[in-house]
Amino acid sequence: MKRTEPLEFHQPTSLAEATRIMLDGGPGGYFLAGGTDLVIAMKEKGLVPKYVVDLKRIPSLSGIREEADGGITIGALTTLREVEISPLVVGRYPFLAQSAAEVGSIQIRNRATIGGNMANATPSADVAPALLALDAKARLAGAGGERVMELKDFFRGPGQTVAEPGEILTELLIPPRHPRLVGEYIKFSPRDMMDLAYIGVAVTLTLAESDRRCESVAIALGAVSPTPMRAPGAEAVLLGQVLTEELAEEAGRKASEECNPISDVRSSADYRRAMVRVNTKRALLNAAAGNGPVPWTSRRDRRYA
């Protein structure tokens, strides 16, 4: 990696220290989590940080815990592999565990963190749609103290978030959800693994016990707009309705109209829209079928439902 100036490397052990180093250091500083995005940017895009603040030695930032109210808090430095295999996540929201498992390889997921994945604000980040479909919130800590916001409001554009200089994404908060909430994440890509999402769709549903009407609906999309997004129009199609194949198809069509994909070397915008349509339908129907955790091989085959 080309570099003529030395890289200052900081390893704070507290949040306050991390923020202070960043504010004192001024422009050219980068927080380092798993490094799977930052190091590639340094190698491929010619990014030359003046200094790096490694967050991995701050103990409070890692781990997954259940709150008294039934919510789940995931520390930002929790690796995607930890999310993928966490019994709590796998048991409660298997589609969230699966979305983590869709990122890169085990080697990557042993390094990449859920907070880094969000803070990097890649439109195709697999975990983002699953978290958005769970109405997740982001907790940030900075010089001005802490703040909590809706995760969807955290993203500003490709690679951009609302975090202020020195402000650190510390936790992702999944509010308590209805015990009957079910969900599904479908990553659509040509290879079965080791690919970026050409599109990603996460849905959650709560179906009434009596008549199976949709009491809650969330549809979130990845890789089809500058930030991971919710599809409110598609959600409205279903809310209060009994989910049928026709309605799922209709919601898929609506979602494909709401998104704003680009054409690139991976896919045309038109194909992305078509895949949003099909996979939103499938995700809804699969979610409603409501199965627990599934091994990856079954997950793969569910895309062919």
Binding site: L7, F9, T36, Q107, I108, N110
Partner: peptide, 23 residues
């Protein structure tokens, strides 16, 4: 980080050594 040829154990876990900084 796309091919795994550089996989080593770091603190007990396999990682891509091409994405780990000496710092």
């Amino acid at each position: 980080g796309d091919c795994g040829a550089c996989t080593v154990y770091l603190n007990g876990k396999p990682v891509n050594s091409c994405l780990v900084l000496t710092g």
